[in-house]
């Protein structure tokens, strides 16, 4: 039985670790389906993390923090849109700039306003058990004894898939990343759709970052996103540009994180660094295995100009 409890704890941690990745990767999936690649997710998540922490700390309300984080990161997403969509600047470069700004800004805000605060912890987000369902062995505690943000992440992916595949909006998003000009001549605004997508992507990255500070660590630590923004980028590829694919990939990556922490804690004689690099190696391997049948949107990274 002990191994079962171990497994249960491991899977529970997996889901917890996957949640911030899911938010960010689903958001980025939308952005990329619309044709905009944002490698600045790391910076956006940091902005979300620090905003959520600061607002939650000041107001005492964690949810207000999460909301503010989504709003702040969405704003930066829109600014990224101004540079890349309206001005048509290179998306990779603008994303790199966004990472630097997010890294600097988050640590600046934290040091400037919380440098002298001694007790910096905030109320942790409570676990909400879902009655009956949490009684199911193993699955119950793993899926139904989590905080609300985890539930939100788990619901976000299928919802996002539904919108993408089964609504006129989803149809428009899928076309604009594939063939923007066809989308424009059909009577839609390429610019508008792309702005909506990057704003949504920003908001999701912000909430993903908020999760780290208010639901996971209960505090802000400089550079606490620790590469998750880049992992989310890999997850989008790994999940083949579909929201549900992103969920599965997030869970896979969450699992390697959870396993790595567990092994580290139990001082198992495997160098933990190898587990640390596992997700990155897995991404490359997956890219190799799935090559050729790429689902990458055709117009990804290509600025759209209305000049004909």
């Amino acid at each position: 039985m002990e191994w079962l409890i171990g497994l249960q704890a491991l899977l529970q941690a997996t889901v917890r670790m996957a949640a911030p990745l899911t938010f960010t990767a689903v958001g980025e999936t939308y952005g990329e389906r619309a044709g905009v690649i944002n490698i600045g997710l790391e910076g956006l998540m940091l902005i979300g993390a620090v905003t959520a922490y600061a607002v939650a700390f000041a107001s005492g309300n964690v949810w207000l923090g999460v909301f503010a984080a989504g709003l702040a990161a969405a704003t930066f997403g829109v600014l990224f849109g101004v540079v890349t969509i309206t001005l048509g600047a290179n998306q990779i470069v603008a994303g790199a700039a966004l990472n630097l700004i997010g890294l600097g800004l988050s640590s600046f805000i934290y040091r400037a306003f919380f440098g002298s605060v001694t007790n910096r912890a905030i109320q942790p987000l409570e676990t909400v058990k879902i009655p009956l369902l949490n009684q199911i062995p193993v699955v119950g505690p793993v899926l139904f004894e989590q905080n609300l943000l985890v539930y939100a992440a788990l619901l976000l992916a299928p919802l996002a898939a539904l919108v993408l595949n089964r609504t006129m909006l989803g149809l428009a998003l899928r076309s604009v990343g594939e063939h923007p000009k066809a989308t424009a001549t059909a009577g839609l605004s390429v610019i508008g759709l792309r702005y909506a997508a990057v704003a949504f992507g920003g908001m999701m990255a912000g909430i993903g970052g908020a999760y780290l500070s208010v639901a996971y660590a209960n505090q802000f630590v400089e550079n606490m996103v620790a590469g998750r923004g880049f992992i989310a980028l890999a997850i989008v590829v790994f999940g083949r540009w579909s929201p549900l694919g992103a969920l599965w990939a997030s869970l896979l990556f969450g699992f390697t994180f959870a396993l790595q922490l567990r092994l580290q804690a139990q001082s198992i004689p495997i160098a933990y660094q190898f587990l640390q690099i596992l997700p990155y190696v897995a991404t490359i391997v997956a890219m190799i295995l799935l090559r050729g049948q790429s689902a990458q949107p055709k117009a990804l990274g290509v600025p759209y100009t209305e000049r004909t």
């Binding site: 919108v163 006129m168 989308t183």
Partner: peptide, 12 residues
């Protein structure tokens, strides 16, 4: 069909 109905109804 998807190409044909694109943008013929409100997005969301």
């Amino acid at each position: 069909a998807e190409n044909v109905i694109l943008a013929t109804r409100p997005l969301l």
